[in-house]
Amino acid sequence: MGALPSRFLQPITNRSARAAARGEGISLTGVSKTYRGRGTEVEALRDLNLDCPEGSFTALIGPSGCGKSTALRISLGLESHDGGTVRVAGKTPAEATRSGLTGVAFQDAALLPWRSVRKNIALPLEVLRRDPRAHEEQIAGLIRLVGLDGYENALPGELSGGMRQRVAIARSLITAPQVLFLDEPFGALDQIRRRSMNVELQRIWLETGSTALLVTHGIDEAVFLADRVVVMHANPGRVVAVIDVPFERPRTPDLFSMPEFHRLADHIAEVLHGT
């Protein structure tokens, strides 16, 4: 912890307030997106507003096809949008990604099958034209952080699903990103593995102090990890509610069984189902 810059050690609320004033973090304003197929039009997003203050953890939750992944992909510049503005760390998505301010982990680990764990983690460095050899220590540190010591030179085909996903998490952190995008990173894992990964992710995120946007199906996961849960509805994709999560950090696994936790989760489920 001693090596981390002091700003990471400030209380979260302070950081959030300061960042909000500067307008950093992630901000989507009035974003719309329509897919045009053969004779059909699907309005994926309509006037989407999403504000993630710097250093905050936001969970984006909603039914399948509500456009939550599309919002994330637009923020990364992987997809275009028809209207509105997108700012990531105060820059356009293309500028932010190109200057290495972002990190990303997708639902599928999407590891290159011919690269070892170490080389897969180094991939973003190569894309950003940085020298992977200068980051050997960070790579080793991240492998320890995600608990894959001894698997440095294993190929993805030799790892279990959970292990591959942890490689993807390590890869998303190798650039020491200011803004971290997580697209259902644990979607393919079982509940037990998922919970322990949630605890680990919180620990990792607290150490890095980055702004995080998590797209998820899981209410538990959203409540456990996030400062704020943003609920979306489909047809067209839009934000219907932003719900604050007041629990202290660091949160422990006990939280999963506390009545307050369940009250909040039930409330989110109601909003989600529109009852």
């Binding site: 510049g77 990604t97 190109r98 997708f106 599928d108 999407a110 991939l123 950003l128 650039t175 995008f181």
Partner: peptide
Amino acid sequence: YDTRSGDVVRAYGG
């Protein structure tokens, strides 16, 4: 090619 791996590279501005 695997478009998911392509997405990872593009997500870093590649």
